[in-house]
Design a binder for these strands. Structure first.
Length: 310
DNA sequence: CGATTTTGACCAGCGC
DNA sequence: GCGCTGGTCAAAATCG
């Protein structure tokens, strides 16, 4: 899949109301071999089924960590092992460990953003580790002298699952309904554009994201989310202020929060934010993506699975 | 004045 | 072990 494919995508309004923000690709751990691309036929995986029909879980379950990611990976035949060719692609694409260029994302057969962590079930441990940090810094002058706290025990750092989006936008930091605080910026190798690091400002919410521009196509913004929100979308709580957000996002965000908000971002705005009627006119009916009510993964995936199974 | 951004420094992990 | 790079911290600056 080349980046040219993405350029041919039909233009549409961003679900959040921007003039020209176009989500042209996202990568979910659920679709490890199948980047979610608008107006792009979804290629079936080679020699494998996408999922075991016996697995039936919701999008929310997955992103909120109620589903073990080992199970999830097994369900979707994800290959996150170091020897996996998919993982190699991930590393090349830089999404799993760090977002790379859009070129990499596009050319890599797999643009999944799943990092090979031990699953969302470890979110608590990750959080606890994070929450312990400030305390550790107060422990004695020795710790104070160091700018960055060092964990006493050498534990392999646990990463949250990641989701990468390619978005056509002039704006780097896309509004997604949540409040973010920038905590860092780094120059990216082989790229003139820096990568910005953001953290959700909500208390005890450990969700992070980083944003960078594609080298090959500067109009494309690569946004990589990490973790799951443990709270409702502030934009929703504000009552869908100023019509910034699609009706779907507003409704989906209630109780469903982050995952649905993400899904909302994926929805072609020509559907008016209605997830139930995603139809690409350029595609034959059998290849058109139909999303069910509220984008529950179980339905979504079932839809994929049914299509792909012989 | 609190919240947010900027920015240089530091750390961890990985490849060689 | 060393160097490179991604990721994070935290003080200073800036903003509203």
């Amino acid at each position: 899949m080349s980046e040219e494919n993405y350029r041919d995508l039909s233009h549409h309004d961003h679900p959040f109301g921007y003039d020209h923000h176009e989500i042209i690709q996202s990568s979910f751990p659920f679709f490890s071999d199948n980047p979610f691309v608008y107006n792009q036929p979804v290629a079936p995986p080679k020699n494998q089924q996408w999922l075991d029909p016996s697995y039936n879980m919701s999008f929310t379950d997955c992103l909120h960590g109620s589903v073990d990611y080992k199970t999830l990976s097994r369900a979707f035949d994800m290959s996150c092992s170091p020897s996996s060719p998919i993982d190699d692609n991930l590393k090349k694409a830089g999404v799993g460990e760090s977002a790379g260029t859009a070129e990499n994302l596009s050319t890599a057969n797999s643009s999944v953003s799943c990092s090979s962590n031990e699953g969302a079930g470890d979110e608590e441990s990750a959080k606890s580790e994070k929450e312990k940090q400030p305390q550790g810094r107060e422990d004695g002058d020795e710790e104070k002298s160091k700018k960055v706290n060092k964990p006493k025990k050498k534990e392999k750092r646990i990463r949250e699952p990641r989701f990468a989006f390619l978005t056509k936008s002039e704006i780097d930091h896309l509004e997604d309904g949540y409040r973010w605080r920038k905590y860092g910026q780094k120059a990216v190798k082989n790229s003139p554009y820096p990568r910005s690091y953001y953290r959700c400002t909500y208390q005890k919410c450990s969700v992070k994201k980083h944003v960078e521009r594609s080298v090959k196509d500067p109009s494309t913004v690569i946004t990589t989310y990490e973790g799951q929100h443990n709270h409702q979308c502030p934009a929703t709580l504000r009552g869908n202020a100023a019509g910034m957000f699609s009706p779907f996002l507003a409704s989906a965000s209630v109780g469903q929060s982050f995952p649905q908000a993400l899904l909302a971002q994926l929805l072609p705005p020509n559907t008016g934010g209605d997830p139930t009627s995603i139809v690409h006119q350029d595609l034959p009916p059998q290849q058109q993506l139909q999303l069910p009510d509220y984008g529950l993964l179980q339905d979504l995936v079932t839809s994929f699975g049914n299509k792909q199974q012989p």
